[in-house]
C-alpha cells in the first residue's frame, strides 16, 4: 500500500476533530447553567417587587450603586497607568510588582478583608487618624470602597496590561517622532487602541466590586450593601428571601455590561 493510500484511509475514518473539546466544554457549560436555571425557577414563588421595596433593600441597593462605581473608577484611574508601565517596561523588581498585583486574587476575600482591618482598622494609626478626621475607614461606605477596590482592581490591571501589550510599540514611536510627548502619545494612541481590553477590564472589575462579599463583610458589615444584605436575609429567611435582591444584583451587572458594550464600543477597524 502506498503512502497516499494510507493517508486517505486514515482520513475517511477520522472522527470530527473538535468532538472531545466540545464534549468537555459542554459539561462545564451545563454545570454553569444548571444552578442558574434552578435558582431562577424559584422566582415565581417569591414576590420580587415587594422584596425590593423594603427600606433595608432600598438602602442596600443605594449603597451598592454608590460604592461599586467609585471602586471601579479608583481601580481604573490608578490601575490603567500601572498596567501601561507593566506592558511597556522591564525594571528590577518587576516580578515582585506583578506578584503584588495578583495577590488580591489569590488571597481569599475574607482573609483580604482581615488584612485590610489590620492595616487601617479603627485601632491602627491610619484608622484612628481617619476616624478622628471624621472619615472612619471601617464600618462605613469608605470601608466598603476599600474592600471592593482591594478585591476587584486586579481585573482591570491585568486586562488593560494585555491590551497595551497588544499595541505595537512602534505605533507609539511613530507618534513620538511626529512630535508628541509620552503623555499625549499615551492619550492619542495607546489608550484608544487598548480601549476594548480596558473596557472589558472595567466591566469585570465592576461586576466583582458590586458582588464583593467576603472582604466587605470583614471591613464594613454595616452599612449593608446588596451582598451583605443578601447574607443577612439568607440567615433569617432562607433561599426565597434572597431571590429579589439576587435578581436585582444580576440585573444591574447585566445592564452595566450591556451599556458599556454599547456605548464604549470601539469603532470599526481596531478589532481586525
Amino acid at each position: 500500500m502506498s503512502l497516499t493510500e494510507v493517508f486517505h484511509g486514515r482520513r475517511t475514518s477520522r472522527t470530527p476533530e473538535l468532538l472531545v473539546p466540545a464534549v468537555l466544554g459542554g459539561l462545564i457549560l451545563l454545570y454553569f447553567a444548571l444552578p442558574f436555571v434552578a435558582f431562577l425557577s424559584r422566582t415565581g414563588t417569591a414576590n420580587v417587587v415587594a422584596g425590593l421595596s423594603t427600606p433595608e433593600s432600598q438602602t442596600a441597593i443605594r449603597n451598592s450603586l454608590l460604592t461599586a462605581p467609585i471602586s471601579t473608577a479608583i481601580s481604573t484611574v490608578l490601575g490603567v497607568p500601572l498596567a501601561y508601565i507593566l506592558a511597556r517596561r522591564s525594571f528590577p523588581g518587576k516580578r515582585l510588582v506583578e506578584a503584588v498585583v495578583i495577590l488580591p486574587l489569590i488571597v481569599p476575600p475574607v482573609v483580604g478583608g482581615a488584612m485590610i482591618i489590620t492595616a487601617v482598622g479603627r485601632f491602627t494609626p491610619i484608622g484612628a487618624a481617619a476616624t478622628a478626621a471624621g472619615i472612619p475607614l471601617t464600618d462605613s461606605l469608605v470601608g466598603v470602597i476599600l474592600a471592593q477596590t482591594f478585591v476587584a482592581a486586579p481585573f482591570v490591571i491585568i486586562t488593560a496590561r494585555a491590551g497595551f501589550g497588544a499595541v505595537d510599540e512602534r505605533l507609539e514611536q511613530a507618534s513620538r517622532s511626529l512630535g508628541y510627548g509620552p503623555l499625549s502619545t499615551f492619550w492619542n494612541v495607546s489608550l484608544p487602541l487598548a480601549r476594548g481590553a480596558i473596557l472589558a477590564g472595567v466591566i469585570l472589575t465592576f461586576a466583582r466590586a458590586i458582588g464583593e462579599f467576603g472582604a466587605t463583610m470583614m471591613v464594613a458589615y454595616n452599612p449593608r450593601t446588596m451582598p451583605t444584605r443578601i447574607w443577612v436575609d439568607f440567615i433569617t429567611g432562607g433561599i426565597d428571601a434572597i431571590v429579589p435582591l439576587a435578581l436585582a444584583l444580576l440585573g444591574i451587572t447585566l445592564a452595566v455590561l450591556a451599556a458599556v458594550q454599547r456605548f464604549g464600543r470601539v469603532p470599526t477597524v481596531i478589532e481586525r
Binding site: L171, S175, G179, L193
Partner: peptide, 28 residues
C-alpha cells in the same frame, strides 16, 4: 527626546494609526 528632533521614521511594518483615517494620520 524623539518628539523634539524633527526626524520622521517609516518602519518595515505599518505604523499607521488604525483608529484614524488616512487624512487624520497625515495631519497627525
Amino acid at each position: 527626546p524623539a518628539e523634539s528632533r524633527q526626524v520622521s521614521v517609516v518602519f518595515q511594518q505599518s505604523t499607521l494609526f488604525p483608529h484614524m483615517t488616512v487624512s487624520e494620520n497625515v495631519a497627525y
